[in-house]
Design a protein around this nucleic acid. Structure first.
Lengths: 226, 226, 226, 226
DNA sequence: TATGAATGAGCATTCATTCAT
DNA sequence: CATGAATGAATGCTCATTCAT
């Protein structure tokens, strides 16, 4: 690894501290309700220093939203081996673990709450998160259909169904109840049920696949945040 | 109808105008970003007048959120005749028409965006909207299971699946894209697909039910708002 | 007595109620701190009605100050019979009873507190109250000097000494402690001491006069206010 | 003297300027009538800067009242040599010079005018000013009585008499007439007369003491303020 | 005559942003 | 590079005053 000059390293660390502080403060108070003072305090810096890293409140907000989103979506790049049911199962959990991270939920609330004022951020969120995942999933499902294991007409609908079956309920709940911590087995209930319904509706071999599903268990939590 | 005294009528009209203006302004700017000046202007009144109707910004916000939510959920009280598939179809459309109203989407964005600062409002929203609907749906599905038309173990999961299959995708999209107007046939695609998957997974007589479903068409839009 | 038309009588009563309410409210909050709303409420009237009696806040204030002052100084027109010591004693108590009325103290606080903004009212207060009393007292003391019972060079100083000896201490205290109720025997201590010192310093026959003073007692309280 | 860092010095100067401006503005308009804008302008600062020094209007008011009172009472710490008459004479002038300072009169008017809303400030004023002086004077008079030079029963009354004889009249006048400047020889008239009456009433050797008094003259004004 | 309702102007307080050190 | 200090421009809320009924 190349050694980095002290200065630059310090700069990077400050920037990171600011972005983390910004997520916290903006999440708690919304864009307008948050004050640059509060961000500065949370980051342990003075306000003018803050302004040396980010030109304005708006810029800080936008940068933070994009950066944090990337940070949090980073670990979500699964592929993995095994048969289809195992792969779907692994995918479902990776998705659930990502989407239900408290910080990502905060980010989602912020994005939704400010989307009218910052439509760009909403679009960017969609493009980088859901749209990517959806596309990957569509490709995968299409491949499985090609292999004769699934049956559907509209790959997009199928992919959306999978995600809706698995996460729509717990995520909607979590969005509206910020303190709520959904325990892992409650999540397992949703994941398992979602896969079951999906397979029953789409599998060309439901009996076998459902049996396979029953042998699978929730992976150990792979929280990555922080 | 008894004639109402001019004064009182005027008061009521002003109140309504303020609440409508408040939804608009708060939706555009969030709680903190919205100014009472802006609300007053949007309502066509002066600020002191505004304060004669509502004691504070916070009170106006809370009142508006509850009131508007009730207004918008009001029309959503369907039951209806016909066989199960027709009833589910009618229910799905009633739900979709309600949930996809632009104003209710704005309200939802607001609620989600401010839920950290106003947890009470988030709870109230859940209790009055989704929770009610879910309960009604569970009862209905359970009755159908009793009649031998559906098969499932967990009524709650079944109800959540139905809603997730039908509306999760378009609503999530709409939340993140405020300008997006989802055309009626796009919505129909989701509704139809959702019902299809649901029936395939849960019906005791999928072939017949799916055939019945194909004969049904989207009702005329029953927008009620304003 | 001539009968007064109902209308006019009502007007008078309202005016009086307003003035009383005004004294109360202005005393509690000062000129600027008092709101016309508060006066209207305290008077049991609506604000527009208030404005039919007084053109502006300033006018109400000025009118109230002058009127109330006259009301409260009214009873203070003693002369009375008896020898000099008895007359001074009676005068001292009349003065004390007037000056220590809670309402007059409130009025005095108001006058002093607002005198920079309303110098006219300060002047009017002095002219109608202290100056009158001082002049009467000077005349009386001068007459007694003519009769050989007192001895002094400067009648004004003598009169001021009398008032200072009797009331300076309790009145100063009362001005600074609005809740303080000075009990009658505490007042008696000041009155008695003041007269004693005055006679010792000014009487041509101190021994006799001091003896006479000792035989006198505080009159029954003659509170008149309301 | 150690050099003080520029920053800290500036802070102190600003604070002082604000307090002086505050006395001026509050005196002119009372607590409620005074605006923070006016204070800021009078201090030559912007409003937000003002708020960096004082958290609120109320806090500024309280701080200013206490601080200014201390500033102005500071020089009033006389003891002095000479015989009793000379000491009393010196005391009387020290008192008069203190109490008749225009700024202290303004402060007194403010205190009296706002005492109903800020009773604490009235109490603090009494405790730090009059009460201290009274106590010192009582001790002194008691000592003189012990030395056989004065005769009285109640030291408190004697002390109050002295103050009442000397300053009650001019101070009362000054409170009600803010523009009035009492010339030094008018003050001398009161001081001299007050001492004369006091000695005639309380001295065990009035003839000698009054003769001594006649040999004394008003000291050069010792205005200290600012 | 009396009043509910309305408003222009003002006030305490805060905030994003910029200097001077 | 970092920071204490400074400010123009809001913002929530109130008040003296005026209409319309």
């Amino acid at each position: 690894m190349t050694q980095m000059p002290r200065r630059q390293l310090n700069r990077l660390m400050n920037e990171k501290r600011i972005l983390t502080a910004a997520l916290k403060v903006f999440s708690e108070s919304g864009y307008s309700g948050a004050s640059m003072d509060a961000v500065a305090v949370a980051a342990g810096l003075s306000k003018p220093t803050l302004y040396q890293y980010f030109d304005s409140k708006e810029q800080l907000f936008a940068t933070m939203m994009l950066q944090k989103r990337d940070d949090m979506l980073l670990p979500f790049r699964e592929a993995g081996a095994g048969d289809m049911v195992a792969q779907l199962h692994r995918f479902a959990w990776a998705y659930a673990d990502t989407v239900m991270q408290p910080d990502l939920l905060s980010l989602a609330r912020l994005t939704i709450g400010e989307v009218q004022r910052f439509p760009e951020i909403g679009r960017a969120y969609q493009a980088a998160g859901p749209d990517q995942v959806l596309k990957g999933l569509m490709d995968y499902l299409t491949a499985q259909r090609g292999a004769g294991r699934l049956s559907f007409d509209d790959a997009e609908l199928a992919a959306e169904d999978l995600w809706g079956l698995i996460l729509s309920a717990p995520r909607t709940q979590a969005l509206y109840k910020p303190d709520l911590v959904i325990p892992r087995d409650a999540l397992a209930r949703y994941v398992h049920n979602g896969l079951r319904v999906f397979l029953r509706a789409y599998s060309t071999n439901p009996a076998t696949d459902l049996a396979a599903l029953n042998g699978l268990h929730a992976p150990v939590s792979q929280q990555v945040n922080q």
